[in-house]
Amino acid sequence: MSKTIRLDKYLSDMTSETRSKVKEYIRKGRITANGVVIKTPETKVDTESDEICIDGKQVGYVEYYYYMMNKPQGVITSTEKGKTKTVMDVFKETEVNCPRFDELSPVGRLDKDTEGLLLITNDGELNHKLLSPKNHVDKVYYAELRNPVKASDIEIFSSGLDLGDFICKPAKLEICDSENKFAAKITISEGKFHQVKRMFEAVENEVMYLKRLSMGSLVLDKNLQLGEVRELTVEEIIRLKEI
């Protein structure tokens, strides 16, 4: 979407340079807008129609970024720096460079020992839509369990499991292989703290391994290794926004 912003903000948003460094570039005449040298940082430019260049190299404007991460175990879903490694620390270790990295945040949370799909974006509106209870966005997990899944578990999950402090919405529990009833897929439309683990605990079972496979229309890329990140395709973004 087109909008008008200050030239120095435009450049600081789209480069790794600080606002003061960008202003220095502008004052030195290194920046052009539509072929004209601009030397005032506060000059307003249109993010869509104006062609902005640094030393003759065009710098396009992108407002929102969308990334898929295959979250590894042992890291927490947080943007805050601390003693424990975060998913944003993992992001920094990849070769993916986002000019607006400081604006990014994960959508929802995965437990420290849970692997799989994690959406990371600076699109606050989409973040809110995906997490809003009223939208009932399905999340699919693969679980390996201490005990085999029973037929009665499937019925209990589908009827809405009572965890004491809240009653889960109906969930879909599927045995992955008729020969291996220790592995299952579960689809939930909520995201309560430790929900999947607590649901299995409620039927006297224990999750030994947990991986998120999908969130809404977004499916974990099978080619994405643990700890890797890639940008979403245009099609994936469009489908996600069709909530």
Score class of each variant (00 low, 15 high):
residue 119 L to K: 10
residue 95 E to H: 11
residue 174 E to W: 08
residue 200 F to A: 03
residue 134 K to A: 12
residue 162 D to W: 02
residue 94 T to L: 05
residue 28 K to W: 01
residue 102 D to F: 09
residue 113 D to P: 01
residue 205 N to M: 01
residue 40 T to M: 12
residue 201 E to Y: 13
residue 32 T to S: 09
residue 192 K to V: 01
residue 84 T to S: 11
residue 5 I to Y: 11
residue 99 P to W: 03
residue 170 P to F: 11
residue 80 E to G: 01
residue 35 G to E: 05
residue 174 E to M: 15
residue 30 R to Y: 00
residue 158 S to P: 10
residue 202 A to N: 12
residue 141 Y to Q: 07
residue 30 R to V: 04
residue 7 L to K: 15
residue 48 E to A: 12
residue 66 Y to A: 14
residue 87 V to M: 02
residue 16 S to N: 11
residue 46 D to T: 07
residue 42 E to A: 11
residue 29 G to P: 10
residue 56 G to F: 03
residue 35 G to K: 05
residue 144 E to L: 07
residue 75 V to E: 06
residue 234 V to K: 15
residue 242 E to V: 00
residue 240 L to Q: 03
residue 45 V to P: 00
residue 37 V to K: 15
residue 232 L to C: 11
residue 141 Y to N: 10
residue 45 V to Y: 02
residue 139 K to D: 04
residue 33 A to F: 03
residue 137 V to F: 02
residue 73 Q to A: 11
residue 82 G to I: 07
residue 22 V to Y: 05
residue 220 L to T: 13
residue 28 K to T: 10
residue 165 D to N: 15
residue 71 K to I: 07
residue 156 I to E: 08
residue 225 Q to D: 12
residue 235 E to T: 14
residue 114 T to S: 15
residue 76 I to H: 06
residue 181 K to C: 13
residue 33 A to C: 15
residue 39 K to P: 01
residue 108 G to T: 02
residue 85 K to Q: 13
residue 59 V to R: 06
residue 130 L to R: 14
residue 75 V to D: 03
residue 70 N to S: 05
residue 163 L to I: 13
residue 174 E to F: 13
residue 180 N to C: 06
residue 227 G to R: 09
residue 187 T to Q: 03
residue 190 E to L: 06
residue 116 G to V: 00
residue 8 D to Y: 10
residue 43 T to L: 14
residue 51 E to M: 11
residue 82 G to P: 08
residue 83 K to M: 07
residue 192 K to Y: 05
residue 146 R to A: 11
residue 92 K to T: 09
residue 190 E to D: 06
residue 190 E to T: 14
residue 27 R to H: 14
residue 9 K to A: 06
residue 239 R to F: 05
residue 208 M to V: 08
residue 21 K to C: 01
residue 166 F to M: 12
residue 146 R to L: 09
residue 102 D to V: 10
residue 2 S to A: 10
residue 228 E to L: 05
residue 208 M to K: 14
residue 167 I to D: 02
residue 178 S to L: 12
residue 151 A to T: 15
residue 92 K to H: 07
residue 163 L to D: 08
residue 54 I to P: 00
residue 116 G to N: 01
residue 106 P to T: 10
